[in-house]
């Protein structure tokens, strides 16, 4: 792993225009992903994690507006690309989604979809070679009987198999950065473990960097090198996964960790974070977590804490950690 950032996101701010107002989905988000690194973006609904992913893969819906910020991928700003450059970049940043069935056109066989992608991206025209290439990738994602899968329609395959097929198609264009948005959420726990395992293996084999978006801190901790915790459109904490688990700083991160039921403890009462996320059309003036935080003070209400490197390689945005740098 080198420390060369493959992706830099700077001050990203994104709004959605909806019927009854403007949703301030992402505000001032900055982070980097190094080559070969797995970075997990963790947050609950309304945290803006998916919007960040969509912005990087430039797949934002029509009603999204990027107010500010830069997304620099291998030295080039993705937000200011000439049209002819777009396709070359698109090959290098790929995204996979939560619902694999919704990603594949049900009218075409897996093989037809796959062949189209390969033909377009690898500029191959020999049908036999295309097929060979497709089968090779289907094998790489550990699918049994790739021949049969090549000739199947999406509805004939299970959710876990479909997600593998999509990963195979995604890999065939040789991406450098893979954005995975909750790719295992719709799957059963046993299949979830399989897909996570596969992603890690493929990362090593193909030299991928991965931005893994999830609501599940446990999954993030297992597969991530680094974890970025988002709440209400802002980053509240960022650290390596070991550090974050050992020494969570932000009250939200602490709360989130306590919410995970541990199987070796018999609880009389589960820990939870009281309250709910604020209305995203009216973000609070001060800290985003202030309404649900037990340690909030007047300062938190008035003044937005900045994301600072409180400990070495451990950033947090919270007034509890101001000044007294260790």
């Amino acid at each position: 792993m080198t420390d060369q950032p493959i992706l830099q996101v700077e001050n990203l701010t994104i709004d959605y225009v909806v019927l009854d107002g403007i949703i301030k989905a992402v505000r001032n988000v900055s982070f980097t992903i190094n080559e070969g690194e797995v970075v997990c973006l963790v947050g609950e609904s309304g945290s803006g994690k998916t919007t960040v992913g969509l912005a990087i893969s430039r797949a934002l819906p029509e009603n999204a507006i990027i107010r500010e910020g830069r997304i620099i991928f291998k030295g080039r700003d993705l937000l200011n690309l000439e049209i002819r450059d777009k396709s070359t970049i698109e090959d290098k940043v790929m995204m996979i989604f939560q619902d694999p069935a919704a990603t594949l056109n049900p009218l075409f066989k897996v093989g037809e979809i796959f062949s189209d992608v390969i033909k377009h991206h690898l500029k191959l025209s020999d049908q036999l070679k295309i097929r060979e290439k497709a089968l090779e990738f289907l094998k790489a994602v550990e699918l049994p009987d790739p021949e049969r899968i090549f000739n199947s329609y999406p509805h004939e395959l299970s959710g876990g198999m479909l997600q593998r097929v999509i990963i195979a198609i995604t890999l065939s264009v040789n991406p450098k950065l893979l954005i995975a948005d909750e790719p295992t959420t719709m799957l059963d726990v046993t299949l979830q473990a399989q897909i996570l395992d596969l992603l890690i293996n493929l990362k090593k084999k193909f030299g991928l960097s991965i931005l893994f978006i999830t609501h599940n801190l446990s999954i993030a901790a297992e597969i991530g090198d680094r974890i970025i915790v988002m709440y209400g459109g802002e980053i509240v904490e960022e650290a390596s996964s070991e550090e974050l688990l050992k020494n969570p700083l932000h009250p939200y991160t602490k709360g989130l960790l306590e919410c995970i039921p541990k199987t070796h403890i018999k609880y009389s009462k589960l820990k939870s974070i009281p309250g709910m996320i604020f209305d995203l059309r009216n973000p609070p003036l001060g800290c985003v977590f202030v309404d649900r935080c037990t340690e909030a003070t007047d300062l938190c209400r008035k003044d937005k804490p900045r994301l600072i490197e409180f400990l070495k390689n451990h950033k947090v945005a919270c007034h509890l950690y101001r000044g007294s740098t260790k």
Binding site: S158, Q192, Q194, L217, S218, E222
Partner: peptide, 24 residues
């Protein structure tokens, strides 16, 4: 046992669990 092993646990590193192969 495999179901237990499949529960993601933040305090366990990846690769420490039994992964069930194949589809139901």
């Amino acid at each position: 046992r495999i179901l237990f092993s499949s529960i993601p646990d933040p305090y366990r590193k990846f690769g420490e669990r039994v992964i069930l192969r194949g589809e139901p």
